[in-house]
Design a protein around this nucleic acid. Structure first.
Lengths: 170, 170
DNA sequence: AGAGGACGTTCTAGTTTTGACATGTCTACA
DNA sequence: TGTAGACATGTCAAAACTAGAACGTCCTCT
């Protein structure tokens, strides 16, 4: 449901082709709203069909550049301000925690240790991303930084929790 | 993909009917892996079809009690130990943060404030859940507590982040 | 006795997501 | 000149998820 709003949000910052948008989804939005190529092109056609975006230029290799329309902007703002964000998130990582009694204590500790390590690695990646963003000429919006900071804090929390949880199983 | 493992995990703790399992999903697993009733019954039939679970008793009102089979247990353990947990989680809440520049500064602050409030409310609920669990005769497994603690820490992180983020927009 | 509510399952119709296949163009460089 | 690799879009089948209707049974309370 929110893929369409992701596209609208990106197009609100300027015209882009499906290919460009795919890049954005793979880079900046990868950790927030992953999307596949087929899904993206399908959605672009739907959005164009309902007049929320329109082709503003055509380039080489069949490239179609889309721009957001007035009604697209209206829809985006409506979604931003009126639609309540989803509260619940599925997490197979946590689901496994519920069933940890099904494997041995050592298996459980090993699982939690692994979760901590993965989170620590993710944390490092985000930190290097922040360094890049801070130092670079490329300027991510203020708001992108907010999201990045959320990721940093979330990962730190997970690292600490995993360590704590592993200690609990003794 | 993990609904099946959620069901296997619950059935590993003892036989239950679809109705019972639905209750478990609504109560303990609601924050980790929400599932609807239709999805659940469909999956139970599929699981029975592939021999991972079986009907162990039939009760009144067409009640069918399922039990996990040996191959079901094997599948559960395989999933627990061999299948890497999913890293990325979609979050329309964070997606909106990326596009906050599309609304006014006051709108953005109000959105972040709202996120903080919602998280604070969720935190309270989890805290009362913990009290209930700690004091009650009902004993949630050690592992359920670990998951609960994760929720608590996550919510606290989100409350703090939302406050910090709101201050950033000045 | 009757009614409301909990118990219990099945089915349908739609949307979203995944993963893969198919197809073609342009550019740089060996 | 040829070819690898980036650019660029389209389509399809299957799985997962959502939302709700439909149906019938058993128990408890008035």
């Amino acid at each position: 449901m929110s893929l369409r709003h992701g596209l609208l949000g990106l197009l609100a910052e300027g015209p882009a082709s499906g290919y460009d948008l795919l890049k954005s989804f793979e880079l900046s939005l990868a950790n927030v709203w992953p999307a596949t190529q087929s899904q993206l092109y399908t959605e672009l056609n739907k959005l164009a069909g309902s007049g929320l975006i329109e082709v503003v230029a055509e380039g080489a290799r069949g490239r179609k550049e889309y721009g957001i329309t007035e009604s697209g902007l209206a829809e985006l703002r409506h979604w931003m301000t009126e639609v309540p964000p989803q509260q619940v998130h599925r997490s197979d990582m946590l689901l496994r925690v519920f069933f940890l009694s099904q494997i041995t204590g050592e298996g459980a500790r090993s699982y939690l240790r692994h979760l901590g390590e993965v989170a620590a690695k993710g944390l490092e990646e985000l930190e290097s991303m922040r360094e890049f963003v801070d130092s670079g000429t490329e300027n991510l919006s203020v708001y992108g930084r907010l999201a990045l900071e959320y990721g940093l804090r979330l990962h730190r929390t997970q690292v600490e929790w995993a360590q704590w949880a592993e200690e609990q199983i003794r």
